[in-house]
Design a protein around this nucleic acid. Sequence first.
DNA 1: TGTTAGCACTCAGGCAAAGGGAGTGCTAAC
DNA 2: GTTAGCACTCCCTTTGCCTGAGTGCTAACA
Lengths: 363, 363
Amino acid sequence: MLTTAGFSGLFFGATFMLGEELNERSRRILEALIEDHIESAEPVGSRTITRRHQLGVSPATVRNVMADLEEMGYICAPHTSAGRIPTEKGYRFYIDSLLQVRQLSQADQQRIEQHYRLKGMRVEEVLREAGKVLSSISHYTGLVLAPRFTSTVFRHIEFIRLSSGRVLAILVTRSGTVQNRLVELEEDLRQGELEQMTNYLNRTLTGLTIQEVRARILQEMAEEKALYSSLLTQALQLSRQLFQDEAAGEVFIEGAANIFEQPEFADLERMKRLFRAFEQKSRLVALLDKSQQAEGVQIFIGAESEYSEIEGCSLVTASYSNRLGTIGTLGVIGPTRMPYSLVIPIVDYTARLVSKLLETDNR
Amino acid sequence: MLTTAGFSGLFFGATFMLGEELNERSRRILEALIEDHIESAEPVGSRTITRRHQLGVSPATVRNVMADLEEMGYICAPHTSAGRIPTEKGYRFYIDSLLQVRQLSQADQQRIEQHYRLKGMRVEEVLREAGKVLSSISHYTGLVLAPRFTSTVFRHIEFIRLSSGRVLAILVTRSGTVQNRLVELEEDLRQGELEQMTNYLNRTLTGLTIQEVRARILQEMAEEKALYSSLLTQALQLSRQLFQDEAAGEVFIEGAANIFEQPEFADLERMKRLFRAFEQKSRLVALLDKSQQAEGVQIFIGAESEYSEIEGCSLVTASYSNRLGTIGTLGVIGPTRMPYSLVIPIVDYTARLVSKLLETDNR
DNA sequence: TGTTAGCACTCAGGCAAAGGGAGTGCTAAC
DNA sequence: GTTAGCACTCCCTTTGCCTGAGTGCTAACA
């Protein structure tokens, strides 16, 4: 269920080997420290650890181990007389080697499910709702990357003449998402002519993916047969225009206010930076796109995302799919100090649920 | 160009009368104080005023006048040994009686215009762009309330059978906005049957406003003639469902990060509150709706909006229209300490421009 | 040899006191 | 009616002190 294969190789080969150096006691202390820190958001000291965990050793021993862990880069001290906090490397080791991901309880599963109606939900509604549920259950911010237009299956096109020379094109995909574009034509076309064009296009293109549609249009244009009718030639030219531009990936951000309640965002500058990151969605899209290529739950910790605006944040994502394969990504963004053992199954379960809900669209 | 008629009666009858009590000198001092405060965001003292404005009086005199202004409620002191800041009543008097609204320069007009393409912009694109332009030119946050579905003119309907019993309905308005809804039917309909239905509905309903459409459907259902065909009866029942639910008013918020750069939002709590207000759009919609009923530029100062989350903020709005009349509202939200003389013409000009751009949709 | 107790040391954060600065209101003189 | 002068207020910053939590080191112990 949890894989970080896609990225752990990339970022953590070295980490893993160092991980081998850790004996059982060091691991348990690191785990205790990280879990205490996740709960308290404060640096954790040696005494706190011995008090709250039955490790069978004294604070002094813990201090020695912590000194080693610090040297190895798993934890660090914000200042001399403070406890330790995990580094990104520490979190990565924790997630890869120490974390026990629980199964979501039946009750939690139901709590998630009950937000979705079974009938009459459009794709967009399902995705938006998924974002909201993710944010409200996790108490962080929900992110959902909608399916790319390019990867959807063409179902239907419709031209509507709005006024002289202005035509509205409506594109429907098989899953029922709708896109519309406005075209200004040199010469006016009557609605009847437009209908002829749509009939032709629907006949020719239905059932193809948008990528295939593009190829098919070019092919049709190349073949002479289209030339017999200037109207059809026009239709092809027009539709080439319509299908060529890729709409920027759309991302739904839900519950952004949640994340700002976290103590790490008491700092105004950080809050603003993250806020700007949310506003400028393109980089988020790129990041989510990246995780779409991998199976299972992906975790980006802080700078691993190569996205400095979300410094101090982690991203837990999973991709969702329909019968055609993976079509989008959803997940949660929150502070790196995040209870991964809770968030991971929530994201995982939501992705599965969304996949199930969208699957039926392709009967 | 600037009217506050719709609201000044409501809120400022009393203010205006008190305004009469103010002699020329008091007015000039109040004006100077407000303008200094708008620039500095700090309480303004008597010496600062005499230093920066040629009033021909000493600080002591200014102090006396300020004491009077305070008693009348136009200004207040945050604490004993600070300068004064304008109250909401002060701002209101300033806007109603002292403010000189400049015309937008040719250069500024062009700066705004160049953000819009002249051709092929859909309504939604025009509105989003307007929000962005408003925010980037004013350095505050742009708000645009999209036209209500109810007030638009029906142009076209289309049913697309997605799978057994699942039908996608696409509604197009005359201005080219598209809405789509998913319907689950008890019994399966063939695409051919759906086409019959759309033909009938398009013939019957095109050109009516949505409100009229609703009435017409009920009327058709009441008349026996529809009963002759069970298919048409079904069509009417289906479309009644489609048209009855009012989509919540849609509002575009652009450049929310801008407003958080203002010094008044250095306070974390306030920032969060405003942020939550942005996230929960329904009340913003209500507020913008309110101003839609009035002509010209409207200004809501702080609590006048009866919307405590945006305490300390002002809203400068103007409604835009097409040939059918007023259809929506746009504006800027920023701190009450806002250079109104700049913002007002920006909002005014944008509203006119948007109206002009949308007008062509109704040829 | 690994573990632990003890101890000196460090440093952030809270609190109170002190000082400076900006501004006020009042009074008396112009 | 206006102004200069002055005592007063209060915020804000700086300073110093103290406390508590935590560390690293060392020496003793098992």
